[in-house]
Design a protein around this nucleic acid. Structure first.
Lengths: 227, 227
DNA sequence: AAGAAAGTGGACCGCGGTCCGGTTTAAGTG
DNA sequence: CACTTAAACCGGACCGCGGTCCACTTTCTT
């Protein structure tokens, strides 16, 4: 439970409560969040849905994953799917949750150079490479799970990654605007871009990796005081 | 006519031809493309549609822009809207076309430092600032017009911008992988990010601008030969 | 046992996108 | 100019999907 992935239900389904301030807590590294602990039937249906979804994706591709289809395959009402996962993106995200947590564990507490122990710049290099590999592996799902426009920077997994990069940057280049720099740095790891480059432009993964490395060098290098 | 904006109909509407190779020519800077020159009624309807669309956006916001609504407002069939603009994104893009062309003209042939005549790094700085301003101005439309995932890097306007940045980078840092670097550099100008930062995080525009400037410095600076 | 909370499911809605029979336009042709 | 014809265009019925809603059922607690 590194960031309270989609193991949990979509926040408070709907009814009364809604903390007025800090509606979304910045996911602290390694924080534990009490899982809502679903009711028996709900948990059963959740499992069935995930299983059915994975099956559907496997045999028809991510585009073939229809909310209605997955509901039918799991012998469950359509409304149940939405109650559990919020929307289509939520379902896709849940499918990626496993790998997401593994990845988080790797860079939060795994062995160097990805995990703590190595110098920041080196960790950044390792981070990009690992991320690229993971993205390529799950390209189809990652692409399908990408939320549309206004939620692209608001979803928890993304915020965890961004937060991590920000911390590393603060260590490597304390004088920079690390928050913004982190956003920039993460751009070449974006699934949509990776897809465009590797699939539509047939660019070898190695080139992406070396470009990432160069980028880290440039960014963590001296802050050319030009201008 | 800088890149054959959406003044033209969606490519060849549908029927027979389809050049097997180079289905989308990289928009050369300043290239002219013969406009299909619509039939009289088609041109009239196109104008009406754009007018109606602009009106609808003005009074109900970009989210209120429905293909059916704009068709009705222009007293035209729904099919016509799709035939003319391909899809919703196409319509939104057409609405932005005017400003797009103006912007292109500014950095392709306008006065320095945005246009030719200034050193590359300086042009890059100007480019980012201008782009940020424009994006903030038309945030709502830009956001709504953003194509989903797999077409985000394939649309002509984006390619023109990317091409331009690539050229400037080649001038400023010939030893780098300028194609990829351009993608990275353009990330902080992405409408979705700008929206997230300025609207959802209340970050002042000035900070984005200065971060851009710093970024250009870092990127065009010495390629720290670490590693 | 009984009430409250949580969960369920399928009818329903709106919108983006497709399709195809009918209509209009524009370029020949006598 | 009148007429013909083929291509371009039009429009609205139609489809599928994502998402909502709410009356009903199941589970949990005491």
């Amino acid at each position: 439970m590194l960031y309270a992935g989609s193991m949990s239900t979509v926040p408070p389904p709907s009814p009364p409560p809604q903390q007025p301030l800090e509606p979304l807590e910045l996911p602290q590294v390694g924080v534990e969040i009490d899982e809502p602990c679903l009711r028996a039937d709900a948990a059963r249906n959740r499992a069935r849905l995930l299983e059915a979804a994975a099956l559907l994706v496997a045999e028809r591709g991510a585009d073939g994953l229809t909310m209605e289809a997955v509901a039918a395959a799991a012998q469950v009402g359509k409304g149940t799917v939405f109650r559990r996962f919020g929307d289509r993106t939520g379902l896709l995200t849940a499918l990626l949750d496993h790998s997401e947590k593994k990845f988080q564990a790797a860079f939060l507490s795994g062995p160097p150079p990805l995990g703590p122990g190595a110098p920041a710049a080196e960790r950044l290099r390792a981070f990009g490479v690992a991320m690229l590999r993971r993205t390529v592996d799950e390209l189809e799902l990652q692409l399908a799970a990408e939320p549309c426009a206004d939620r692209r920077f608001t979803n928890p997994p993304r915020r965890v990654l961004h937060h991590h990069v920000t911390l590393l940057l603060r260590e490597a280049v304390p004088e920079a605007d690390c928050d913004l720099l982190a956003h920039t740095l993460m751009a070449p790891l974006d699934p949509a871009l990776v897809h465009h480059l590797t699939r539509q432009s047939a660019m070898p993964l190695a080139r992406l990796e070396s470009a990432w490395s160069d980028l880290v060098d440039r960014v963590t290098g001296p802050a050319a005081s030009a201008r």
